[in-house]
């Protein structure tokens, strides 16, 4: 795992994990995964310059009061790219991070060499209401998010100290600020997905119980030319449950579309 570096994006401090060589790839994490460098990122770092910032209020990035809407986060990442002087990047977002990446892509698709969304939330899908994670205790949460409950160990907190509990509460608070109601989606986003001009890969866990395959179909329909890859042994987080396969899919997709090295 690379040593975290602290940068400032406009006036917002950000904790950044960065490693690897190649074209820049921005990885946007999901809830509870801030500040973690997982096997998935490690695999990508073999081919890309992987940048994995923690969202404000997540991991070691302090909360930012000005972030009140998911679009604020998307603009924040455009600011981050500008701050680092990165012109065009590959973007990969998982779950909540996928939502943010999709918002960003509708705003500034020209900044993306490619877009990979891994089981994103963020749009309303007819006939589906996302289960309310904020009200769940751990066993129910794990059962909703993971196909193999053992995979949850990768996101387990280091201990149950006061500091750890405070960090978890801060992360949930940062998420709730933008995702409590409407819950896990932006009513405006779905219509805007047609604006995404970057080549788009959708990776989906076959057993996702938070955003099931019916959601994947909606995303595939809305994003022009999007490719859908389903991972048979995964729930909501295939990049945790099948990291090698998902990383290989991303690498292959990017290699076909521009200089990924």
């Amino acid at each position: 795992m690379p040593a975290p570096t602290r940068m400032v994006v406009r006036d917002t401090p950000v904790d950044l994990l960065r490693d690897g060589r190649g074209a820049p790839l921005l990885f946007l994490h999901g809830a509870g995964a801030g500040g973690r460098w997982l096997t998935f990122q490690e695999r990508l770092a073999a081919r890309f310059d992987v940048l994995a910032p923690s969202h404000p209020g997540h991991g070691a990035s302090p909360a930012a009061e000005w972030i009140e809407h998911v679009s604020d986060l998307a603009f924040h990442y455009l600011d981050l790219l500008d701050t680092l002087g990165l012109g065009r990047v590959h973007a990969v977002g998982a779950s909540f991070g996928g939502w943010v990446a999709a918002e960003l892509a509708t705003m500034a698709s020209h900044r993306l060499r490619s877009l990979t969304l891994i089981d994103p939330v963020g749009i309303k899908v007819e006939g589906w209401i996302y289960p309310f994670l904020f009200g769940m205790e751990l066993p129910e949460l794990v059962a909703t998010v993971f196909h193999d409950p053992m995979a949850a160990v990768a996101l387990a907190p280091p201990d149950m100290s006061l500091d750890t509990l405070a960090i978890i509460y801060r992360q949930n608070t940062a998420l709730a600020r933008v995702a409590w109601n409407p819950y896990l989606y932006n009513p405006r986003l779905r219509r805007r997905l047609a604006r995404i001009a970057a080549p788009t890969l959708l990776c989906w866990g076959a057993h996702d119980r938070l955003a099931p395959l019916v959601c994947a179909e909606a995303w595939r329909k809305e994003i022009p030319g999007a490719t859908l890859r389903v991972f048979e042994e995964s729930g909501h987080l295939p990049h945790l449950e099948e990291p090698d396969a998902v990383a290989a899919a991303v690498i292959e997709f990017c290699a076909e579309r521009g200089p990924g090295r």
Partner: peptide, 9 residues
């Protein structure tokens, strides 16, 4: 349920 006592934020 414990989460109900202290919702986020």
């Amino acid at each position: 349920r414990p989460p109900y006592w202290q919702p986020p934020g």
